[in-house]
Write a protein that binds this DNA or RNA. Sequence first.
DNA 1: GCTGAACCCATTGACGCCCATAATTACCCA
DNA 2: TGGGTAATTATGGGCGTCAATGGGTTCAGC
Lengths: 155, 155
Amino acid sequence: MALFVGRHRNRVDKKGRVSVPKPFRAAFAGDDFSGVYVYPLFKFPALEACGEAFMERLAESLDDLPMFSEEQDDLSVILENAHALPFDPEGRIVLPADLVNAAGLGGEAMFVGRGQRFQIWEPKAYESVRGPAFERARARGTTLPLRPRRPQGEG
Amino acid sequence: MALFVGRHRNRVDKKGRVSVPKPFRAAFAGDDFSGVYVYPLFKFPALEACGEAFMERLAESLDDLPMFSEEQDDLSVILENAHALPFDPEGRIVLPADLVNAAGLGGEAMFVGRGQRFQIWEPKAYESVRGPAFERARARGTTLPLRPRRPQGEG
DNA sequence: GCTGAACCCATTGACGCCCATAATTACCCA
DNA sequence: TGGGTAATTATGGGCGTCAATGGGTTCAGC
């Protein structure tokens, strides 16, 4: 599967349109739904986006939680606040007002790859929140506990 | 899988292009994505590069961690700072400004084999940082416990 | 008839592709 | 063993294409 990596900074025009970076769009090729699912993060002033496959996985994970439980109710807010945003012919999406507000977006949007999904940030907010993360990793001498290599596919 | 070994010193032209040494390129033959993933290292003023397989493994390791957890946020630093750099028809990649800055690259780049991955250094920085490593290993009488030979072939 | 959204079109600027050339390296033959 | 030659890789520059962007226009719903 194609991965989302790196950062891309694009403009948000007067109509609220913003181009999804081509490398990110490419990862959705073949999906039934030509667009992305976007929802606000509760942890950061930012949005997260994913494709159909991941959204289904998320829904299933929610179903694994006890029915009528508090956690299920809480985490369901993701689905409740998610928007399915279709691509226009040029590969742009229109961000609804509630998402713009949640992320504090202005004239520009920063697309940030996260592997299976990506995030959308107001550039300055990204800088101040995530900027220190790299320095922190350096200071801690962070090491990566990698998942063991798979015996077969050896992908 | 082919291994990355040895050092290669290539020029970086005005456009930021640099040839990936042929022996290194060969290791990526057969990948869906014809190019390399490059990200800055925490520990050194240098870049590290890997292929699709390793990057997917990294993304999967991330997904093994709980969504919205702190660890996941920390580890995704690599993905956020990585660039997918495609080969041009001549086997070169274009290094973006942030990577050039992170490694302090000028007119030349040193490619250093590291087995499953390789690094990209500014030649002088490599000399001063890694040069002593050989002497240090000698002085310490460093030893390396080898992993037992695997039963089959299976690279 | 009005509002809003989706589509179409034009511009521009970066990036990828193609070519030509130079520097190695590998190979062959004397 | 040495030199010469051929093939391959590295390098540099120019040009064409495509992605990003902005505005206009048509269509549908109210």
